[in-house]
Amino acid sequence: MIHAYKLNGYNIIVDVFSGSVHSVDELAYDIITLYENTPKQQILDQMLKKYKDDKTVNTQEILDVFSDIEELKKNKQLFTEDTFGGKAFDFKNRNTVIKALCLHVAHTCNLNCEYCFASQGKYHGERALMTYEVGKRAIDFLIENSGTRHNLEVDFFGGEPLMNFEVVKQIVAYARSIEKKYNKNFRFTLTTNGMNLNDEVTEFCNKEMDNVVLSLDGRKEIHDLTRKTIGGVGSYDIIVPKFQAFVKKRGNKSYYMRGTFTHNNTDFTNDIFHMADLGFKELSMEPVVCKPTEPYALTEQDLPILFEQYEILAKEMLKREKEGNPITFYHYMLDLKNGPCIYKRISGCGSGTEYMAVTPWGELFPCHQFVGKPEYSLGNIFDGVTNKEVVNKFKNCNAYARKDCTTCWAKLYCSGGCAANAYNATGDITGVYEYGCKLFKKRIECAIMMQVAKNQNK
């Protein structure tokens, strides 16, 4: 299967099952798109007719393209057969270890964001803070269930995790005290709204956190529209100076600004560029996922605008890179040469199998988005994973699990998509969140185009 598209003056062919990417001229583009379903003589006649005014196109040139295509096919770089689909059953029976936990250290928040999936941090339940004892047991649980895996990830999440900062520090100290004994390396991350950022938190994060995610929606009027304090006041003026001070001291360590765009700011590239103007270089903007009845929900009519925005962003990023002032956008980070293995590309994020969320009480869920949905409780950190039925459901939840994805060119980039989004859109984790698919495919097209552009500028 191939995917052929034109973007920003480039003609691009993606060979789905080999991962190969080809940048081609007009003639080769036309021939490749006809090649598998049209007799060669017919292609030859069509091309000679179409390019009759082009002096570089003649019978020999067309035959040379045929020859190049056959060479690429022989090298398994074009029209490559799917060798993985038939093995999907083996994939379901694989043994997995847990390699990452999302610790919900605070089911409470000091902001009241309108679109929050966690219902102001409470996950439709009681306010709660994780105790050190629960956090300590979660670390032990991760070590016990991680097999020989050396690198382990722990994400401090909420609600607002900095509302339980003392426990965060204690959990990290405990993990550090035992990691060598068990031959493990903990990588900690933290997601914060910034309200409680101060010098002590900054120093701690710079010492212990591999990555810190800072929530900012961009322009002040956009951010303050939805991200308000409990008293109903916009939080932009409080957090932006704190974020700027934090990033200044961050040095070369990872962070990224994470925004959410809604129907209120379909021109979201302006928010990304605003964040860049504030001095932030590692950026991400996510489309809001919510009930279609919400006033800020994205609509079908928004799609062409959003597609154009993604293109504007890609072109601007190429321009800024050329000028020596680059920014990164999470969804355009694509490592074609040294990217993930096929296992990762089929299995995706590993929610429910390799990655789980832990509530303040120690209950386990497939990921942070399923917390508070009792039917998705997997067990707890004291008794272990007891709901094997749900785990098996998530094992089956991969790039080959959905009939709708059979003919999709992007499935080895999205791995079948986000289980939580599918569940929220269709009631089934192996459903398809079509709106998200459309945006995802556009982003991948832009990301690959950027790689092609950089390749040609070498």
Binding site: F17, S18, G19, S20, V21, H22, S23, V24, D25, L27, A28, E61, D64, V65, D68, I69, L72, K76, Q77, T80, T83, L336, K337, N338, G339, C341, I342, Y343, R345, L412, Q451, V452, N455, Q456
Partner: peptide, 14 residues
């Protein structure tokens, strides 16, 4: 030269 192939990690792996 009408086809330029980028260097990519070839997936056709266990």
């Amino acid at each position: 030269k009408r086809i330029n192939t980028l260097a990519t990690r070839i997936l056709v792996q266990t």
